[in-house]
Amino acid sequence: MTPSSQQQYMTFYLGGDLFGINILLVREIIQNLDLTTVAKVPPYIAGVLNLRGQVVTVVDLARRLSFDENERGGLGNCIVLKTSSELENNPTSVSLNERTIADKVGLLVDRIGDVLPVDAKSIIQTPNQSDNRLDKRYVRGVVRLSDQLLILLNLSEVLNTETRVE
């Protein structure tokens, strides 16, 4: 392990839960969404939006993770992810073992949290406690913070269209 095993994580809330994704995967955050819904798409696609001339497909993360509707808080924050080619062209993200997809995708979340440093050693790979609400495939690991658990998302699985939502 190199000393730089600490990485920055972008955190956000879905209902009462705190989630995190590596900040190197994040392109930008947009509020005041002007979403256009699209007919016939899978239920976890919230719609599309115009980000300065680029069309971003917005994934309703709560639906994707099969959260109950009533657990959801305020809407309207979107974390726009870097595309896989943006990652490849960026030397700082070469060390990442996570990948996004080629399309421009945003994640619809309830509330944006802080950016937290996470030490690789503190990540618990297989959480013992069974949280039935969340499919294990979507979780890379959890980090025990002083007051709550930070759930690190397995983005490749979340973005994979092959993965069925049960």
Binding site: T36, I45, G53, V55, V59, I101, D103, V105, T161
Partner: peptide, 27 residues
């Protein structure tokens, strides 16, 4: 014409997406 993301492609009834003059997206 902008390309469809993989999620929209699999719907099968859109061939692309575009941004209208008012900045809104249309399929």
């Amino acid at each position: 014409v902008k390309p469809l993301s993989v999620y929209l492609k699999q719907v099968g009834c859109y061939s692309g997406v575009t941004i209208m003059g008012d900045g809104k997206v249309a399929m």
